[in-house]
Computed example of a mutant assay.
Amino acid sequence: MARPRVTTKTKIFRIEIVLVDVEPTVRRVVEVPGEASLAVLHEVVQDAMGWTNSHLHEFEIDGVRYGMPDPDFDTGTLDEARTKLFRVLTAGQDAGYVYDFGDNWHHVLVVDAVAAPEPGVRYPRCVEGQGACPPEDVGGVFGYPEFVDALTDPEHAEHVERVEWWGSDRFDPHYFDLAATDRTLERLAWAPLAGSSPTARS
């Protein structure tokens, strides 16, 4: 299947993603073509944050829920694959995104700006970030700090159990690698607008 193509008419949405009620702060800033569907935005959030897409998810925008509708149940959830980003969000607007209805990770997505694409630049891309993504199945915002405490404290009653579960006694909640995070989005790349990237110019 041919890759979607960025054109001169494409609008690029700069979106800040923040994981709610988690310390230290976990945030990413991504740039996504406005014609991308919410299903693609879901994949961008997963890759940029560092999740593994192993659980259910849902967007909420202006009180409307978007996700993967269940054909056997009418839940009122609209199909994210049929909903384009530019049709439901504008500059300054925010959206909710929940991942894993068990651990219940809440994210706030804020459209910081909508701008023209840069020639030669690959979109989607991650341009900023901080903080490590919590491990999957760690117990949400309440289980996460307990996991970090138990893992880093050899005297903690659950230290051995947590090390065995995680496979190591190392986890830095402040760690973030922008280059590595951005590389995860290469699989979603649109064909860029013709021209040279500003970073490639002398």
Rank of each mutant, 00 (worst) to 15 (best):
V64W: 08
K11N: 13
D70L: 09
E186F: 04
A81C: 03
F73W: 13
M49H: 07
A157P: 02
G139H: 12
A200W: 11
V114R: 03
Q93I: 02
T90K: 15
A200N: 12
G143C: 07
L41A: 08
R65F: 15
P198Q: 03
I61L: 12
D149L: 15
Y144C: 09
H106Q: 10
G63C: 10
G195S: 02
A132P: 06
G63A: 04
D72P: 00
A113L: 03
Y97K: 03
G139E: 13
P135K: 04
P117V: 00
D182R: 07
V160E: 15
M68I: 14
L151K: 05
W190R: 10
D137N: 15
Q93R: 14
G67C: 01
H174C: 04
E118K: 13
W190K: 11
A194R: 08
R82C: 03
F176K: 03
T7S: 14
A179G: 03
L188R: 03
P198G: 05
H106M: 07
V138S: 09
N53I: 09
V64G: 01
V148K: 12
M49D: 00
E58H: 05
T52I: 09
W165Q: 03
D62T: 06
D70Q: 11
D74G: 01
G50Q: 12
K9Q: 14
L178A: 06
S197M: 06
G50T: 10
F13A: 05
M68P: 01
V29W: 05
E128D: 13
T10N: 07
S197R: 14
H159W: 01
Y175I: 00
W166H: 15
D153G: 06
P4K: 08
V88W: 08
H174V: 05
G143N: 12
D182E: 05
C133E: 09
H107Y: 11
D182I: 02
L89V: 11
V160I: 02
E16A: 13
G140K: 02
H55P: 07
T152V: 03
T152R: 15
P198D: 13
E155C: 02
A179M: 04
E164A: 14
R3Q: 14
K9F: 05
P134K: 14
A36L: 07
E43Q: 15
